[in-house]
Design a protein around this nucleic acid. Structure first.
Lengths: 194, 194, 194, 194
DNA sequence: AATGAATGAGGGTTCATTCAT
DNA sequence: CATGAATGAACCCTCATTCAT
């Protein structure tokens, strides 16, 4: 009766998936319950309200879902890398490469981050992780001493923006790879000692 | 009858100013005529419609106003700098410093850029300018050879994000100066040869 | 979410009915959602938007409903008549007689025809039917040779105007019958050979 | 201060003229003060309110002006005709011919009659005149005995409708002449004895 | 005589949400 | 679980009119 169902509900997953597609296609501002319901093949928006406590709840679920997708993709590559620099490269390059694998998820994520970013723990979590990575590298002496939080913000938003631009054009994998390499070059130079 | 007033109208300026404050405080999505009218001390939203052809028109006027403010502030500093590197530093540092002078304008600008960015020629103009600056530096041999467009995107969005974060906290001028220096260090290292 | 309901919805029918009464009473120009909602006993206009895709949709539904009413009444009488002249008489007389049965529908129809006439295929269909009838009579040699389209326009609008006047006064059935006879006399004389 | 100026004001005439053109071009429903002011080259709608007591007043003035135009054209032709039948022909044919001379006035008149018809004395006056003409012809024995008022309604509305259709197409003078002759044939046959 | 600014009512429409079934 | 109906607030916008100047 309340809305807010068990996490495992298949209906929930179906709605979240539809919402992500709508956000990716029509933008965050146009992602209404109406469009989402239609995309999901539901006859009524009330089903969404039934499964989610509110729009915020749905959006949070989208964010969670997207991050599960992206993390699954990126974590493997990052985990395989050895050393602070290599891991940072892996982060940037796998993030760019992700556009080729899950364009809708990437587009939706960027829109969600733009519009609901600072409230979201998930987004802030990603930020904190990178900040922590920077501090670790600094302690290990492989990164310069800069404002780690500031650099984390600059990096994540920069990567997001490049990825967003790329996501609009659906480029070739090879082109994406070059883009990712170029971009990680930029940041590695920025944070490592001369 | 109007719907499009002479540029110099004081009411227009008052409404634009109120709109900027609302966007800065409540976000682009919540910047409704109602809130703007209330902020401006107007008795009804129809006065806004009287002075502006529509919401788009008002938003465009806000963007114009903000850019006038920011350009007036930044152009002087950038123009005073000599050399590609110094000019880039001037851009980044003056942009960060701007937060201390016009926090509302900065916050609003960032929200407008996020939500109306790719349609706005003013925004795209800024991007093109930096891209051009990069190419010029590359031709002069003072910048490395990287994807100029990509780097321009990464830089502008990174600066915007750092600035946005700073704008939320209203920090001291000295702190802002340090932040600007740190950030421009980052980008200068990123784009200059080892 | 709907905006376009199944044809059989009782609410839809209720709203259409209310709209017809409002148009009949206040005129097409004053048939606002507010007045229609009040007439239908609804608490808000949004319910109308819920059941109809827009004002046009509602108006189209009204036209359809009215034509169903009028056709049901007139078709029987016209179909029972034999010969071109008798059918024309049946058309004119049954149209006038209709005022006694469904005054609101008649008044509303005339207002709708006046204001949305040339766009409506239903209205144009009626015109085309009569024009065709005229041509048939001319080919059969029972009608004179005149501009069939022009005469159809003159007849339908003339009948509409007489009917509209009659509808304003709610006259007795006998009086209506005489009016219908007189009017059909007029047109029969106009189109049959001396 | 009140609005409602002396009849002879040149501004008044200018506004009336603009209003007629707007009604003819955009239709009665879209004839707003805004559009009329623009058409008249005025900078503000308040000037209209200044010269006219209200919208009704302006519309009445339009009707008066149009009738002055049409009467000037038609009266000459009707007055030159001798006999009841010839005068009726002159009315119908000159009315149709008018389309070629003053298309805007005709289009506007028809729209005004449709939307403000039954309230207007001028319109009702025209009706009464024809009704009187019919009675005169009946007394003189040249017209049959029919419901004079009803026939007047049928005739005027029929002529208006044909004229309205013609006004939409701006046809050749010769075509208009034929149309007028055909139409007056129709009505003459309708009202004269077999 | 004329004007620009301002007003308030009302326009249709969209939206997330609630409720009874 | 699921649904269709209903709701009320809020949205942007247009209109004729008024007022001080």
């Amino acid at each position: 009766m309340r809305g807010q169902q068990a996490r495992g509900s298949s209906r929930r997953a179906q709605i979240v998936s539809a919402a992500i597609e709508v956000i990716a296609a029509d933008g965050f501002a146009n992602a209404t319950f109406s469009r989402i319901a239609k995309q999901a093949g539901l006859s009524s928006t009330s089903l969404i309200s039934y499964h989610f406590a509110g729009k915020e709840d749905l959006l949070a679920a989208c964010l969670t879902e997207i991050e599960a997708i992206t993390n699954g993709f990126m974590q493997a590559r990052i985990g395989a890398a050895r050393g602070h620099v290599a891991q940072l490269r892996a982060y940037v390059e796998s993030n760019v490469a992700l556009v080729g694998e899950h364009p809708a998820a990437v587009r939706a994520l960027i829109d969600l981050v733009k519009n609901a970013g600072s409230q979201s723990q998930a987004v802030n979590g990603r930020l904190a992780l990178i900040e922590e990575h920077f501090r670790g590298g600094q302690d290990a002496g492989v990164f310069r001493h800069f404002d780690a939080r500031m650099a984390a913000i600059a990096l994540t938003s920069g990567v997001d923006a490049v990825v967003a631009t790329a996501a609009r054009a659906t480029p070739e994998p090879a082109e994406l790879a070059r883009l990712g390499r170029d971009l990680s070059d930029l940041y590695v130079r920025a944070i490592t000692p001369a």
